[in-house]
Each structure stands twice: as C-alpha cells, then as structure tokens.
Design a protein around this nucleic acid. Structure first.
Lengths: 347, 347
DNA sequence: CTGTTAGCGCTTTCAT
DNA sequence: ATGAAAGCGCTAACAG
C-alpha cells in the first residue's frame, strides 16, 4: 500500500471487518480458517509457525488493514510498549533537545513516548509519576524535584532513569559539572575577574550542586562569589535580576541557564547597560538562540540531545534500567562575545 | 498522603498487595468484603452506590495505594484516556508552545498526551498515525504533510484535528494569514520597499498558502516578489539562503519562520552584511528568541499556545471533534529592528 | 506446528 | 444497592 496511489478503492480502512470495528486477530483467524492463537504466533513469533501459513496470515492481516491493539496486548504481558518522560517545563528549550533525543531512540526501537509536564512542582511530579506508571514500561525523569529516596521507592514499581540531575539510587545521565564550571572559572580568572555572581534557582538539588561547586572553584582562584536567586529559570526571571546584579558590584555572572542569561542581556540592552563592558555573562546549556543574542552568549554547552538518547537507551535496556549508574557527559565552554576582561572602572 | 511526611512507614507503595503486584479492584473488594463490580461502581460512578460503602471502599483503595490500570479499563470501554500530537519536528520552537498548550489542556482534563515526530515525511506521518490510532482517543496533527482526503479517511477511525494548517474536512485551528501578511506587506510598502523575496519551503501546503498570498498582496501594492526556496525550515536553511537573497537584489525578505530568519541574520552578521541597511527581514511566529536577536526581529506573532489549546479543546470535545470547522486566530505584526526603509544605494 | 483453554483488570448488562 | 457473569483483544501455557 504505497502513497503513490493515494486513495484507491481498495483502501483497507473501510474494507471488510464489518461495521467500522477494527479487525482483530479473530477476524483474520476466521478468514484464513485458523485459530486466533496461531495468528498471534504467526504475527509475533516469526519462525514458530509454518512458513506457508504465516505468509497466508500476514497477507490476510494486510488485506484487512489489521493493527495490533496495544492495550489488549499489554494486559496479559504487563508490557505497554510506551515510556514516559516527565519534566518540569516543556517550554524550556533545554528540554527540547533532550526530548528529541529520547523520542528518537524510543521511536527507533518501536516504543511510544508520553510527555508530561510537572510545572516544577514536586507534588505534581509525584502525582504524575504514580498516575503514569501503570501505562508505561518505565520513566525518564528530567531535573526532578523529588528526593533520591522518593524516586527510589517509585522505581520499585517501574524503572526510572534520571536525566540532567543525579539520583544516586538510579541510573543517571548528567553533564560533567566539574569540567564545565572549572573551564568557566578559569576563563573568568584568565580574563582578570575578581568577583562573580551565581544567578541561581535557590533550593533545587540540581541548582545546589552548581552553586556549591561554583563557590568552591571561585574561592580556590581568589574570586569572590555571591549567590543571587531568580524566581524562575526563565527570560523574565533573568531580566528581573539585573538590578540585583548591578547592586552587587560583581564584574561577572554565571547564569543558571541560557534563558536567565538571555533575560539579563535583554534587560541590560533595554536599560542602556553596555555588555560585556559593565559585566561579563556566562550562560548554561547553549540553547540554539545563544549565538543569536547580542552580544552572542558565552555559555557552557550541555550535550542535551545526547543526554536524552543515552538516558532513553538505558531506560529501554532491561539489563541496565534497574541498576544505579552514572553516565557523565562532557560540558564544554563556548566562548563568544558576552565575556571580556573587566573594564578598569568597574574593577 | 502529603509530602510533608516524606517517607513514613505507611507508604502505600510497598504495603499490602502481596508481592509487589499492583493492587487491583479485586484486592480492595476482598479487603472490604464486597464484589469487584461494586468497587468499580463506587470508584467511578459517584452516587450510584451506598454512601457508607463508597466511603469504605475509597478508604481501602487509598490504604492499598490503588491506581486504576488504564490499559485494563480501555479494553471494555474502547476509550484510552490519551491523545496524540503528531508533528514534523519536535525541535522547532514553534511547536513547543503548541505542544505546551495542548498538553496543558489535556492534563487539566485528565488526559495523557503522546508526542510523536514525523521528520517532515508524509509516509512516516501516515505510518505514525495508523500505529498510534488504537492507543488513543484522537489525534492532533500539526502542519500535516498529508492531503485532506487522506486525513479525512484516517479520521473515520479516530477523530483528528488539524493545527497550524487547514484541512477542509477536519476541524482546523490556524492563524489568520490574510491579516498577518497584509500587515507585513503594508509595513514594507509604507517603508518604501519595492521588492520582496519570500523565503519558503517549496511544495508544502502550509507554505503554498503563504506564498500565494504574499504574491497577491505584493502585486497589489506594486511590489515585485520572488520566491526563494530553503532546504529546511531551520537556522541552517536560512543561513544557507543568504547568497541567493543578495543575488536577487531585493530590499526585503519575508521568511517562512523565525528560524529561517534567524539563520539569515546570523549569516549576514558573520558575513559582514549590515542589517537592516542591506535588506529588511520579517520573520514568522515570534518565537521567544526573536526579540533577543541582533537586530531584534520584526515578525508575525502567531498565537501558538492558543492554537494548541484551542485545537486540543475541540479534540477532546465529542460534539466538535468530528465536524469540519475552522478557527482562525489573529496573526499580528510585531515591529522591531530588522525592518527599515531601504537605503538609497540599494533602492 | 496448531488448537484449547485460561486469564490479564476492568466495565457492564442482567439478576437478585 | 449489590452480586454474578460475560467479554474487551491478546498472549501463554498446555495438549495434541
């Protein structure tokens, strides 16, 4: 049935299978005069049935336009053929690439992907996971707000892998923070900066890890560091922080992500604040718009797509989806225009 | 069960229901000494059962940590409680707002959303839809590559609504092209432009509609118009078109979408071409990065989020998801920095 | 290699 | 108001 012959009268859709009902294996069994279980075997266990009858069955199936009903199959097998990805915010471009990576792996392996958003709420995340569990064979949890023990408890039901944040009890796929932040701090240090503000999210696990490390690395290099908290990891959140950044007197800022950095750039621009002259900005993730901004954003490039693919690969692998592990992917500094030596005045 | 008491020993997860198996209505029936069918009623048809026993049943269900198994439910009812959204490219930011709108409506109504990508291939789109159909109660098809008749045929099985492109046989939710393109052409005309290039996608339905209308409106205003085709509606595609745009000698370009426009801006910037001095650029969609670009992008703001919500609302409404209709949402011109009067030299 | 028979968890008549 | 029983479409022993 090729698309070249658009809508010939032999379209399977309306044919046979009386009254619109989707054809079942019973329909095809009857048509070829065999037992439904034989049909099931022929269709799903290649080789475990006579080649001739298998052919006959496949032909009949095609003719009737038969498609297996995944719901019906999942009942006896307990397998659903679908996985879920649950994340705080679908809209965040960071998650685009991650979702895409996961989706492609899933689809390539014949699985279906459910996408669910938790609005960055731990309660909703818990509720979402519990609700989804019976419908899936496993979950990919991105930047979870739940504690490791909670996730571990949930994972007893169906496998869970963590992406973009570390959960010691689960398989996790994360960027190499040490590598990335070290490069960022070295860059700032080489440029001659003596102070930095970390524009973070407050008490979220994934954020804490970044801030602790930043503080560490800064101190080591004799750079003073302060934390400034944004309400949300968004453009608006970043824009809103401009006043506090300026008030702090720092010559450089490290943003929680590129969205926040973008907000800062935008606010600076519309407020007549020159960047990077007034202060340098380093983002996080390298979303596609980073190089489009003015000034183009210096940022830590997170291998989002690969995080998604790797995470999904371990999720669909029964050998690996239950055993704690940690895949650490490189996080590289991409230097563009938003960082420069601090100007004499502000120094 | 609140999160305030993180992991008390009464966590439902591991309690009762022998051996990890999820508790079923049989477990709760046995626990309260009633028939499973009564449990089913109590849980799903409020009022159709004695208030006291209903309470007892709900209590037992909560205690066991019972969750309905959607697969099992869907078998007798034929309803799955899930919808699918299928789109050409998950990565396109345009689709993200749309997905988000759809996802929120779905979730708010207690439905689950499956997201599937077709890589802009008609064959894959057809295959995807057919595969997904038995698992869902309906589909949201975005920027479909399929012909109206094909979609109509598929829609006999499960309802389909079209988003961001018009399918006469289906409910469709689209932006008001006439309104948007008229504003864009008026803007260019007012600025004094006498030529425009439409940077489009070639033979895709959604693209044809835009080009035809652009040609029309340009001619009416005495503006010459040419079509330049990009390989893909992406940043790379747009960047790649710079040479041809310059060669065409036009003073303004209308891009298929903001990604393409972004690519053009970027290529111009790195090629030392001054914008908007050399030529003006108008994008399409107003994705979040449009205002971040340099120069900030003048663009037609598409109500993506609302397209998603409206489309999903009509999809989940059994009264409307089967009858052809057309919801047209406003498409507004947002003037920023990438458009200006043509410079004397190029004029 | 193929047919028989249960049964997955839930809903839904039909009785009681 | 509740119970009994059948069935949704498919798979999986177990026989033959």
């Amino acid at each position: 049935m090729s698309r070249d012959e658009p809508n010939a009268s032999d379209e399977p859709v309306a044919t046979e299978g009386r009254a619109g009902r989707r054809p079942t294996i019973y329909d095809i069994a009857q048509k070829v005069g065999l037992n439904p279980s034989t049909v099931s075997r022929a269709l799903n266990k290649p080789g475990r049935t006579n080649a001739a009858t298998e052919e006959k069955i496949r032909a009949a199936a095609a003719e009737l336009g038969y498609r297996v009903n995944p719901m019906a199959r999942s009942l006896p097998t307990g397998l659903t053929g679908t996985f879920a990805i649950v994340l705080p915010d679908i809209t965040n471009p960071v998650h685009f690439e991650l979702i895409r990576g996961a989706e492609q792996v899933a689809r390539a392996s014949g699985f279906t992907l459910i996408v669910s958003e938790t609005e960055a709420s731990a309660d909703l995340e818990l509720e979402t996971i519990e609700t989804l569990q019976p419908s899936v064979d496993g979950l990919l949890v991105v930047a979870s707000r739940l504690a490791d023990e909670e996730l571990a408890a949930l994972a007893r039901e169906k496998p869970i892998v963590a992406a973009n944040h570390s959960a010691p009890s689960l398989p996790s796929v994360i960027p190499d923070l040490v590598m990335g932040l070290t490069a960022a701090m070295d860059h700032l240090h080489d440029l001659g900066h003596g102070s930095v503000a970390y524009l973070g999210l407050g008490d979220i696990q994934i954020n804490r890890a970044r801030w602790d490390l930043t503080l560490d690395l800064a101190t080591t290099r004799g750079i003073s560091a302060v934390e400034i908290t944004v309400d949300a990891p968004t453009v608006a959140g970043g824009a809103d922080a401009l006043r506090r950044v300026r008030a702090s007197g720092v010559t450089a800022v490290l943003a929680y992500n590129d969205l926040v950095a973008h907000g800062l750039l935008r606010a600076a621009r519309s407020g007549g604040v020159q960047l990077p002259e007034s202060f340098s900005v380093i983002g996080f993730d390298d979303i596609f718009s980073a190089e489009l901004a003015a000034p183009a954003l210096t940022t830590l490039r997170s291998p989002l797509r690969e995080i998604g693919t790797r995470a999904m690969q371990t999720l669909i692998d029964p050998e690996r989806n239950r055993v704690p592990s940690k895949v650490v992917l490189p996080l590289e500094l991409v230097v563009r225009e938003s960082t420069a030596a601090p100007s004499v005045r502000t120094r």
